[in-house]
Computed example of a mutant assay.
Amino acid sequence: MGEQEDISLPKATVQKIISEVLESDLTFSKEAREIIIESGIEFIMILSSMASEMADKEAKKTIAPDHVIKALEELEYHEFIPYLEQILVEHKETQRIKERRDAKFKKSGLSEEELLRQQEELFRQSRNRFQQTSTTPGDGAEGAESLEAEADSSRSESVKAEEL
């Protein structure tokens, strides 16, 4: 490792992983945790270096997931590959969903300020309906369910507007 001594892994995260793997009646010393951290850093350095070489061979400036998978194969860590491929598929799906959601708001043609104004208006209307229903006898359960649905919809719109 030498010159790059400022590189580390989060100790709390490593400790959490160790605790999840170990049986509850076993303990793990700080020195052992430090060895795990150093080993993990070394593994990451070797893997990233090899993946970088793979990218260079293809005249690419960016390390792609395929380069990491090829590096794992070369290092004979075949058992990691199926899990990594599964995580990659899940990540790509999450990105597609996020891109579609972002595109929906961009296509709306509304500014963030306009979306926030509309959200506030929806909240105001919901509060007014709630106040009206709470004073009208007999509407209790139906009115509350309707207001809950409107509030959920408003919250959803709020989150989407904040993500812009």
Rank of each mutant, 00 (worst) to 15 (best):
Pro10Asn: 10
Val14Gly: 06
Glu74Tyr: 08
Gly140Gln: 14
Asp139Ser: 11
Glu74Cys: 04
Ala32Val: 06
Asp139Met: 12
Glu73Tyr: 06
Ala144Thr: 05
Leu110Ala: 01
Leu22Ser: 01
Leu75Thr: 04
Glu90Pro: 01
Ala64Met: 11
Ala71Arg: 05
Glu58Phe: 00
Arg101Lys: 06
Leu122Lys: 15
Ser153Cys: 07
Glu74Asp: 06
Met1Cys: 12
Gln118Met: 08
Lys92Gly: 02
Ser49Asp: 11
Ala161His: 02
Glu150Arg: 15
Leu75Trp: 05
Gly138Ser: 08
Glu162Gln: 07
Asn128Lys: 15
Leu115Pro: 00
Glu113Ile: 02
Val68His: 05
Lys57Glu: 14
Ser8Trp: 06
Ile35Tyr: 01
Arg129Ile: 13
Glu42Lys: 15
Glu31Arg: 08
Ile87Phe: 07
Lys60Val: 10
Asp139Val: 07
Asp66Ala: 06
Leu116Ile: 05
Pro137Gln: 09
Glu85Phe: 08
Lys11Met: 13
Leu164Trp: 03
Gln86Asn: 11
Gln119Leu: 09
Ala144Lys: 14
Arg96Pro: 01
Thr13Phe: 04
Ala12Lys: 00
Ser146Thr: 10
Thr135Phe: 08
Lys92Val: 03
Glu142Lys: 09
Val159Met: 07
Leu75Gly: 08
Leu72Asn: 07
Leu84Met: 10
Leu26Lys: 10
Arg124Glu: 11
Leu115Glu: 02
Leu88Phe: 11
Ser52Trp: 03
Leu164Tyr: 05
Ile35Thr: 02
Leu22Cys: 05
Leu72Ile: 03
Ile81Gln: 04
Glu58Ala: 07
Ala59Met: 06
Asp152Ala: 05
Gln125Ala: 09
Ile41Gly: 05
Glu74Arg: 13
Ile7Ser: 05
Ala149Arg: 15
Asp102Tyr: 00
Ala103Val: 02
Gly40Thr: 08
Gln95His: 05
Ser19His: 10
Ile18Gln: 02
Val14Glu: 13
Gly140Met: 13
Glu79Lys: 15
Leu122Asn: 14
Lys60Arg: 02
Lys60Met: 14
Met45Arg: 15
Ser29Cys: 04
Phe80Cys: 10
Ala32Met: 04
Glu112Asn: 04
Glu53Ser: 12
Thr135Cys: 06
Glu150Met: 09
Leu9Thr: 10
Gly143His: 06
Gly140Ile: 13
Leu47Phe: 04
Tyr83Ile: 14
Ile37Thr: 04
Lys61Pro: 03
Glu38Tyr: 03
Arg101Asp: 02
Pro82Ala: 12
Gln131Phe: 10
Glu79Asn: 11
Pro137Cys: 09
Glu31Met: 04
Ile36Ala: 07
Thr62Cys: 05
Glu34Asp: 06
Glu142Thr: 07
Phe105His: 02
Gln131His: 14
Pro65Arg: 03
Ile18Val: 15
Thr13Gln: 13
Lys106Thr: 00
Ser134Trp: 09
Glu142Ala: 13
Val14Thr: 09
Ala12Cys: 06
Thr136Phe: 08
Ser134Gln: 11
Glu157Asp: 04
Val89Asp: 15
Arg129Asn: 12
Glu112Val: 00
Glu3Ala: 14
Leu26Arg: 08
Ala12Met: 11
Tyr83Lys: 13
Ser8Thr: 12
Arg100Pro: 01
Lys57Asn: 11
Ala12Phe: 09
Val68Trp: 02
Glu163Thr: 09
Pro10Met: 02
Lys70Thr: 12
